[in-house]
Amino acid sequence: MSDLLTVDGLTLATSNTRLVEDLSFSIAPGERFGLIGESGSGKSLTALAVTGLLPPAIRPSGSIRLGGTQVVGAPERALVRLRGDAVATVFQEPLTALDPLMPLGAQIAGPVRRRLKRSGDDASRGAVRREVMALLEQVRLPEPERLVGAYPHEVSGGQRQRVAIAMALACRPRLLIADEPTTALDVTTQAEIVQLINALVKELGLGLLFISHDLPVVGQVAERVMVMRQGRAVERGSTARVLTEPEDAYTHDLVDAARRFDSALEGRP
């Protein structure tokens, strides 16, 4: 079976430091893959590299094959098409990921219109609007009629993240990258967004690259995980195995730390 994303021997470096070194992993269609790491681990840079959005000063080497296309060294034009078609990203802070001066409906309509035009479908106002409403419903937003006209600051953080997810889905990607999508949210909202991502990935058969520092959250989403530390993969395996029987000392530390707070919640300090 051909993988949706295959990263092989990826190294990211500036002129004087290596930020990510010799990273390899792959994601099959419909698979949910977790990337765990603390600050400075290189996990977010890896996501940027996959979408070809690295800052110019960081040079990638190795191979990233996304839906059969080589990303490393690809011209910007090819990458633009890839981003609209094969992969979409949801970021940590929905307030900065959305345009503050544009109504939410118009923000989702942008990628919808581009996709309809590219595939030669009906891209009339009515068709775009129907599609936008369908997307809002798909991300379980209440009162979609009201929300299309609202601005980002007028809705809650959780609703903003749902809109960001709707925008990501608008171009019908086959791979969804979620970079710390719940970190900026309240706990109760966080749980809802995790549920939503899980449900959508299943419904649409998407591949998922879920990036987080939060072990229990990754545990609820991913089937397989890779743990990164200072640019290197230190451990990989099934989520259940890594989070219960970690082999690497660093992973062990992380799992112990997460379990400390868990057991405190069970009343066992």
Binding site: V187, T188, Q190, A191, V194, D214, L215, P216, V217, G219, Q220, T239, A240, L243, T244, E245, V255, A258, R259, D262, L265
Partner: peptide, 14 residues
Amino acid sequence: RSLLSSIPRMPESA
């Protein structure tokens, strides 16, 4: 109750 139940927990050891 909703606050407590929303907190993600680590998977139990096999």
